[in-house]
């Protein structure tokens, strides 16, 4: 895991080359490439995006562009030597939304999937791309490294801040909670609810199942509190005044707490 100002990047190295999950922002591409270079001299072969925010996809062009596609036969010359870049994997909603929002096409995903799960086998281990439906957005992917027992959770799990429910991009509070429960199904603690499967969050410290459970509990409790207030016909302002995040604001931030309340309220109203 490379922790940076744009969040966390996961790097897998091995005989096939280098796989990079979420190369962060454009601004930190060169330092990220320098850190990757310290881990392995092999070429970058794959880039995977867990979501479509600029702090996850911004570095795609530079990082993927410095890599190489694995290919053979008639395609080899065209891919390895001509296009010169590693493929960028993401859920197809990432590509749909990035292309729908305009902008320059460079750095967009080149390989997308639309099913619940896409399987790869890279560097001696299965790598699974699992779609977390309508969570932070509708294009979130959790990347599971099965042999090394690591999950890149993206912005479904951000233990240093409240989650962001991007309603404009298909996110929802219930989808986010479902994503966290999905993550808990994948993780296995080693001993006394500690260690075992390591979880790389979109933002925040390296975590394990206990940290995910603690966060899932918080998100569920806040959702249920707001749902209860909505059932009592409270307006958004009344819900905010009831301070349903007050006991967690010290950890995750009061200002973001107010934004989270609004996102949950509007998500439940849909």
């Amino acid at each position: 895991m490379i922790a940076g100002p744009g969040g966390n990047t996961t790097v897998q190295v091995g005989r096939d080359g280098v796989l990079v999950v979420d190369p962060q922002t454009t601004a930190v591409s060169q330092p990220i490439l320098a850190e990757i270079g310290k881990l392995s001299p092999a070429p970058i072969r794959y880039v995977i995006n867990t979501t479509l925010d600029a702090d996850h996809v911004g570095g795609n062009q530079a990082v993927a562009g410095s890599g190489q596609t694995l290919a053979g036969g008639n395609t080899r010359a065209a891919t390895v030597y001509s296009s010169g870049g590693a493929p960028i994997y993401a859920h197809e909603n990432v590509l749909k939304r990035l292309s729908g929002e305009g902008g320059v096409a460079s750095g967009w995903p080149t390989d997308t999937y639309f099913v619940d799960q896409k399987d790869l086998f890279i560097n001696g281990e299965p790598v699974q791309l699992i779609h977390a439906q309508a969570a932070h957005t509708d294009g979130d992917t959790m990347v599971v490294f099965r042999r090394t027992d690591v999950v890149s959770a993206g912005d479904v799990f951000t233990p240093d801040r409240y989650p962001v429910i991007d309603l404009q991009r298909g996110g929802s509070i219930n989808g986010l909670i479902a994503g966290l429960n999905q993550l808990l199904r994948i993780t296995v603690p080693e001993f006394n609810q500690q260690g075992g499967t390591l979880v790389v969050p979109g933002h925040g410290r390296l975590s394990d199942e206990a940290d995910v459970a603690d966060y899932r509990d918080m998100v569920t409790i806040v959702r249920d509190r707001i749902q209860d207030l909505v059932k009592r016909k409270m307006t958004l302002e009344q819900v905010k005044a009831a301070r349903p995040t007050f006991d967690y604001d010290g950890i995750y931030g009061a200002q973001k707490g107010a934004e989270f309340i609004e996102q949950v309220y509007r998500s439940l109203a849909r």
């Binding site: 603690p189 006394n192 609810q193 206990a210 459970a213 006991d247 010290g250």
Partner: peptide, 22 residues
């Protein structure tokens, strides 16, 4: 804030699979 969290606490938590070995 601590008081509010503790008021919300339910001992059934210790029976949940993701918490019982803490």
């Amino acid at each position: 804030a601590a008081r509010i969290r503790a008021d919300a606490w339910n001992p059934e938590r210790w029976g949940m699979p993701e918490h019982q070995c803490e």
